[in-house]
Amino acid sequence: MNNDKNPLHGITLAAILESLVAQYGWEEMGERINIRCFNNDPSIKSSLKFLRRTPWAREKVEQLYLRSQRKRK
């Protein structure tokens, strides 16, 4: 994919996760994306570890981030 067209280009997974936690909190994120690292003793570190090795979950988090950014505009 051309980086100019990728809306996530230059944004780290950590920054995405921190933004979502600030906007929604862990509880709502766990409701929106039902994964254990959001629902059971959540932390940025444990979530990053899981998301980096679980492509389907990372995709869901990225899509939630993109939707949240569109709503803010």
Rank of each mutant, 00 (worst) to 15 (best):
L64P: 05
N2M: 07
R70P: 01
V21T: 05
L66C: 03
C37I: 07
W56A: 11
M1P: 07
R53M: 10
E31T: 14
R67Y: 06
A15Q: 15
L13Y: 07
Q69W: 07
I35K: 02
R72M: 06
A14P: 02
E27S: 05
I11T: 09
I33L: 05
S47A: 15
A14V: 14
Q63L: 15
R67E: 15
E27A: 07
G10C: 12
N3F: 13
Q63H: 12
L66Q: 07
F50P: 02
N6E: 14
D41H: 11
P55C: 06
E28T: 08
I16Y: 01
H9G: 07
L66G: 00
S47C: 12
G30L: 08
R53Y: 11
M1L: 13
K60A: 14
I11Q: 08
R67Q: 12
N40H: 11
Y65I: 03
D4I: 12
K45P: 00
R53S: 14
M1A: 15
Q23V: 09
N34G: 01
R52A: 11
E18A: 05
R53T: 15
E28P: 03
R32G: 03
L64A: 06
N40T: 13
S68R: 05
Y65F: 15
H9D: 15
D4P: 02
G30M: 06
K60M: 10
R36Q: 09
K45R: 14
R67A: 13
I11D: 04
Q63T: 13
I33H: 03
A22Q: 13
Y65L: 05
R36I: 04
A22P: 00
I44W: 04
N39T: 12
W56V: 12
F38W: 03
H9R: 12
D4L: 15
E31F: 13
L64C: 06
I44Y: 04
S19F: 10
N3G: 10
R52E: 12
N3T: 14
S46I: 05
E28W: 01
M1Y: 09
E18F: 01
Y65T: 00
V21S: 00
R36Y: 01
K71Y: 05
W26K: 02
N34I: 02
K49C: 11
Y65D: 00
I35L: 03
L17D: 03
M29F: 00
A15P: 04
F50L: 12
L51R: 03
G10L: 13
N39V: 02
W26G: 02
S68E: 11
R32C: 02
N6M: 10
Q63C: 08
K5H: 11
E59F: 09
N39Q: 15
F50K: 11
Q23C: 07
E18H: 06
T54Q: 03
S43E: 09
L17F: 02
I11A: 10
I16E: 02
S19Y: 12
N3Y: 13
I16L: 06
K49G: 09
E28V: 11
P7N: 06
N40Q: 14
N6Q: 08
M29A: 04
S47F: 00
P55D: 12
L8M: 07
I16P: 01
K5F: 12
R70I: 10
R67V: 09
K45T: 09
S43P: 06
R36A: 08
L48E: 06
A15M: 13
V61A: 04
E27H: 05
R58K: 15
P42L: 08
E18W: 01
Q63A: 11
R70M: 12
F38P: 00
E59C: 07
C37N: 03
